[in-house]
Amino acid sequence: QEELVKAFKALLKEEKFSSQGEIVAALQEQGFDNINQSKVSRMLTKFGAVRTRNAKMEMVYCLPAELGV
């Protein structure tokens, strides 16, 4: 569980995922086979993730800066 949270936060820091499906796929690539869209959705809510525009003006998920991840 701890490893999943770390990987999840690291992915969001990249600010390149525009959908929950993309986050699920990226986590599965890292070996988290039991991850699915509903789990990702709950984690996004739990950590207060928001959708914002990145440098390329794409809408992407990211974590609020005050979490200091």
Results as ranks from 00 to 15, higher is better:
Y61N: 02
I23T: 01
V5N: 12
E14P: 02
N54S: 04
L27S: 00
V24E: 04
A49E: 03
E66W: 09
Q37Y: 09
M59I: 11
E29H: 10
V60S: 03
A10R: 09
F32D: 01
M57H: 13
S41M: 10
A10L: 11
I35T: 03
L27C: 01
V69L: 11
V24H: 03
L67P: 14
R42C: 10
F47Q: 04
Q37F: 09
E3I: 08
S38I: 12
S18N: 06
E3K: 13
E2P: 10
L4K: 01
A7L: 07
Y61S: 02
Q30D: 04
M59Y: 14
E14T: 12
A55N: 09
A65H: 11
Q37T: 12
A7C: 15
L12W: 03
M59G: 04
K13H: 09
A10H: 08
S19R: 09
V60K: 03
V69S: 12
A7D: 01
V40W: 01
Q20G: 07
R53V: 14
Q28K: 14
C62H: 07
T52H: 13
S19G: 05
M57V: 03
A7S: 07
G31F: 02
S18W: 07
S18T: 14
F17L: 06
E66R: 06
E22P: 03
A65V: 11
V40A: 02
A7I: 07
N36S: 12
F8S: 01
L11S: 02
A26E: 07
R42S: 13
N34R: 09
A26W: 08
T52M: 15
P64G: 05
E22R: 05
V50C: 14
G21T: 11
R51D: 03
L12E: 00
F32V: 01
Q37I: 13
E3D: 12
E2C: 15
D33G: 13
R51I: 13
A65E: 15
V5Q: 08
M59C: 03
F17Q: 02
V50Y: 10
E29F: 08
R53D: 04
A10F: 08
E66F: 08
R53S: 07
A7Q: 06
L4A: 03
K13L: 13
Q28F: 08
